[in-house]
């Protein structure tokens, strides 16, 4: 059927044996893999700093349109900057619900 020499057949047997052993080992590793507990991930890097963000950057945050971005900038100019994120609640147009949505996207440094 296959015109193979005995040496070529031995090579095929060796390679298929490797595949079978590898598949078995792979299966055992998969079945015994465990998800280990890890330290909490920090996500501050991606938050927008309210004290130096420009209007365009503010408008890219979900829930902030052109008018609200301008009000945030006006507030920052008027008060000399944000001391805490909660100060956002004092800006017209930011209700409790909207603040809850925004607080994950912004930070004060």
């Amino acid at each position: 059927m296959f015109n193979l020499t005995q040496q070529e057949r031995r090579v095929i047997l060796f390679l298929t044996a490797l595949v079978l052993i590898g598949s078995g080992a792979n299966f055992i590793i998969k079945m015994n893999s465990k998800a280990r507990t890890i330290p909490a991930l920090s996500f501050d890097i991606a938050r927008l700093n309210l004290n130096n963000a420009d209007k365009d950057a503010l408008m890219r945050v979900p829930g902030i349109g052109e008018k609200l971005a301008q009000r945030i900038l006006d507030y920052r100019f008027r008060e000399g900057g944000f001391g805490d994120i909660e100060e956002l609640k004092g800006i017209k147009g930011i209700s409790g619900y909207r603040y809850e949505r925004l607080k994950d996207y912004v930070t004060v440094k």
Partner: peptide, 27 residues
């Protein structure tokens, strides 16, 4: 005999590879 065994082995390896691919590790 060798050819028949190897062709059957290729068939089973195809089945084995797909089954193995579809098994998801616990993590």
């Amino acid at each position: 005999g060798f050819a028949v065994s190897i062709i059957s082995l290729a068939f089973l390896l195809g089945a084995l590879f797909l089954t193995s691919k579809r098994i998801l590790p616990a993590r």
